[in-house]
Nucleic acid binder design. Structure first.
Lengths: 244, 244
DNA sequence: CGATGGATTGACAATATTCAAAGACAGTGG
DNA sequence: CCACTGTCTTTGAATATTGTCAATCCATCG
């Protein structure tokens, strides 16, 4: 299979061969993990970043045994660890939700890329800034949406993200994540997530089973969760041109 | 007064004169706003970024009149707008909490800096990645802490951030923010924020009035909110050296 | 077939919200 | 200097939302 990064970056801009080979270096090493396995633990040395090549994983923090928060789901083409760039040890756990392939690379590789290619540097910056925007959206969700709206919003978010990552627009997609994990993502209890999922099902907004989800009424879901469509805009790299 | 940026960056690394002048250019223009004023509105053109030079401001999003979420408070030395780098129009409002001085600069200025100085480029990347880490901490707070813990955590966070921005460690600091704004930051109702603040006062953890706050028992606050001390680590730029 | 991990359900409890009213404080103009 | 205004804070009572606990169901896998 090809390189996630080259594919992802080439969606937005033309790449020279040199730039392609810089990106390919990030995926020289591969590691695979089975569903449920810990990929890296909090407080370990954080000298590597990761690119997710295949599967779903998530980053989370646990305080006090029964108090876990999942910060984000990471799927094919996503980076893991950028927020730890300026920290010496890891701030959170990384765990495989499905069977997963990740490519670890040393932090210093980023620096080489920045020096060699201003275009890739801008691209990385744009990606990181886009992730910040998505995190703001999550903060909004956590702070100001009801449980039902949160669940609806998450389903839509993952629908758009998988579409972008895998290329096929599809109302029926793989959603290989436990209700307990949804709860930890959204700051809810497992039981309540279950009730919300079933309410969405009763209203005929979605269908779901263990491994997948089918969106039956995307508009209603969008309205319910007041999904903000700006986040679907493609990444715009024009900001390096003129002063406005 | 001197440049926020030069001061902030010089805390972490040595700067050449050229680098200093690159940073100074970001603060060539100044605008001042009065407490409560809108600095920039959602959906306007997002062709500029801002450095906050003086005062507190915040970035927020409002859906449906009575549903506001404040994403972050921005104080002296903080950037505003980086998460909109790859968007053409603004995702959120920027509003002055106190009287505020901000310096707008065009997005393209960032690109010039990246091309001219790899060191500043790394620095910007490190700052942005650090902000992501802080956002993860906020996600944790919103999802998994009780109201009382959230309030305690926010007070501590701002205590550390003002210490870093203004240089003086102090248990008594300016906290010029309405309870309604705290509520929108933490995803609570104004009334409940009030009750929590008063509970912290009753326990003799804090004192407060309209404009300031005094921490009486920092340890108890740290324990209550399970504050994670890693976030206080200074930014580490060593990641550009070896791949170890 | 039994064992296991996850999903589902009901009853009850805790936490936080809403609404409405009253208090405190700073700024304003007379 | 005082009354007036508007904004923010504080309080109580009733309500809504979500969490907790414990039991049961269901599918999958050896």
């Amino acid at each position: 299979m090809g390189s996630c990064m080259v594919k992802k970056f080439a969606d937005y801009t033309d790449l020279t061969n040199q730039e392609k080979s810089l990106l390919l270096r990030l995926e020289e090493n591969e590691e695979t993990y089975q569903s449920g396995q810990l990929i890296r633990e909090k407080n370990q040395d954080a000298d590597h970043l990761y690119v997710v090549k295949k599967g779903w994983s998530f980053i989370s923090n646990t305080i006090d045994k029964n108090m876990r928060s999942i910060f984000d789901i990471r799927i094919s083409g996503d980076f893991i660890g950028i927020s730890e760039l300026s920290f010496s040890s890891a701030l959170y756990d990384i765990r495989a939700t499905t069977d997963v392939t990740v490519c670890p690379f040393p932090k210093s590789a980023l620096n080489e890329i920045f020096v060699e290619s201003p275009k890739l540097c801008r691209m990385f910056f744009a990606i990181l800034s886009r992730e910040q925007a998505l995190l703001y959206a999550r903060v909004f969700s956590l702070g100001r949406r009801t449980a039902l709206e949160k669940v609806a919003h998450l389903i839509l978010e993952m629908s758009f993200r998988t579409t972008r990552a895998y290329g096929e627009q599809n109302d029926e997609f793989s959603f290989p994540i436990k209700q307990e994990e949804i709860a930890d993502l959204l700051g809810l209890s497992t039981v309540h997530v279950n009730r919300c999922m079933n309410e969405l099902k009763r209203h005929n907004y979605i269908e779901y089973n263990r491994s997948g989800i089918k969106i039956l009424n995307r508009n209603k879901l969008m309205n319910l969760s007041e999904f903000e469509k700006q986040f679907l805009e493609p990444i715009d790299l024009k900001w390096h041109k003129s002063g406005n």
